[in-house]
Amino acid sequence: MDLEIRDLHVQVEEKVILKGVNLTVNKGEVHALMGPNGSGKSTLANVLMGNPFYQVMQGDVLYKGEDLLAMAPDERARKGLFIAFQYPVAIPGVTMASFLRTAVSARRGYSKELIPVGEFQKILRAKIEELKMDPAITGRYINEGFSGGEKKRAEILQMALLEPEIAIMDETDSGLDIDSVKIVADGVNRMFDAAKGQMGILVITHYSRVLHYIKPDYVHVIFDGRLVVSGGAELAEELERSGYEGIKSQVDVIHSEVAASGAVRRAGKVFWVVH
């Protein structure tokens, strides 16, 4: 197993956000994680990347058999974990070109020198073209003054350059118009195909729209810090029809039953395990 999350509990400041998440993502698989706002989707993404703002209270994450939570964010990245952030930060004064060259060098194992400029430029130009981006972006400061769409595409550009083994896309589709969603999805699909089974993707999204373009093998629904439903691609379609309300009512039923009896319960598609 390439990424195995076991019983993960996470809090931010004093607030518990993840209340026992279990999920396994392997290379060659596309998973979708869906859920309403505030359910813990972004927390999961950030904690997997090692954002120091989030505290792991309980649980384990194994990445290629190693303890992921013991690694610093840069080590995770160099070992092939990637996250496309929902809200990437702007860093004044640092050009995209110098940042990307340093990042690509780190991922490719250059420890003293950086990847030769010529070689890097070639790779960069190709990826920028694939994602139909303006080449002038490389001279701009990281995310500074970028439109919402430019930021998201810049995240996917980084994903393309860093060739991750497990990539998490945190609401990359939100705020994108339909043409941009297609371009981004095409780019991701191309990466996935080119990786020939050596890449796994976790697509975190609020809406099922992006899943028409990036076809998931598995769909998971997160509610209030727990994965409550897992299924195939058809689950996304069901959610598209019924919204999260249908699931929420099932969750509410179980919640009261669990509170009463403290056992494992199922209501329709929803299951609940008390740890």
Binding site: G50, P73, A77, F85, A103, A106, R107, I142
Partner: peptide
């Protein structure tokens, strides 16, 4: 964190 998440020490 952003820079380190891309592999920079």
């Amino acid at each position: 964190f952003y820079l380190m998440s891309r592999g920079l020490t």
